[in-house]
Amino acid sequence: MENVVEHSLAADGLAVGYDQREIIHDLSVRIPTGKITVIVGANACGKSTLLKTLARLLKPSRGTVLLDGKSIQQIPTREVATKLGLLPQSPTAPEGITVADLVGRGRYPRTRWIRQWSKSDDEAVAEAMTSTDVLSIADRPIDELSGGQRQRVWIAMALAQETDILLLDEPTTFLDLTHQFEVLDLLVDLNKSDDRTIVLVLHDLNQACRFGDHLIAMKDGDIVAEGNPSEVITEDVVQDVFGLAVKVVPDPVAGTPMVVPIGRHTSRTDRTDTAAAGSSSGNLAAAALAASAAANGVCRPTPE
């Protein structure tokens, strides 16, 4: 982006809730600029609430969200929309809207009803659609697209806003594995090409480790751990945050931490007759996995 000043996002002493129920009690965080930050945690731990508060969708009862050091509630909402874009978890599109039309609506904060659509708006839309690879389906109605295509179109709409900061609430939730990786790879591209600050909520810890530069693990409305993936995703933290016993081994492809849940029925002895019966099978399975990872050789992510 051509802006000289990079935008910063932080929260200070936040308390947020719905009705009488307070979800976040006292939370402070700094979102690293130009990095991909992933918020993880169990259901109802407040990760979406935090994201929505950062995006000024929810008003904190105490504390402030700071955009470039100023309280986000004090900045006109339209001005915020030129610095910070948001993709909600389940956005709704009007029936029959075409791809180009939807992406074009991302230009709203940059147009005035007096200043009508201009060439620069067309250019911004074209750029957003090129980088998300949806230009070839510009005339298609959204309803006819696959889930992955649709998610790319919504991301294109957020990109047309031309913001330095992009917040995404579970962008992979309703997608199959291929499309999940397509979307996550796209986010890395966007982060690399423009140094965009990206914050997203993800459920899959392995994906969080692979695609996040910075992880925030939450439990009961508090941050339990934050830092780079190998600092955050340890067996102790996952046990604490999710209440699930796991093994953490190096991801055989990326080298990042990989979480292997143990669970109660880890080794289905009734099915696996090759496993030595009677031994403590949980540890055995984990050991086998670690061995296989070691045998494959742990690959470091290849620099581009």
């Binding site: 929309a81 948001l86 993709l87 956005p91 009007p94 609506r105 709203y108 904060p109």
Partner: peptide
């Protein structure tokens, strides 16, 4: 009407997206 119908196009994208785009 002219002023608000312009905003109606954004409102149609759902409340959260509309907030995100800077609509009150």
């Amino acid at each position: 009407m002219v002023f608000l119908v312009h905003q109606l196009r954004i409102l149609q994208l759902g409340d959260e997206t509309a907030y995100g785009l800077g609509l009150r």
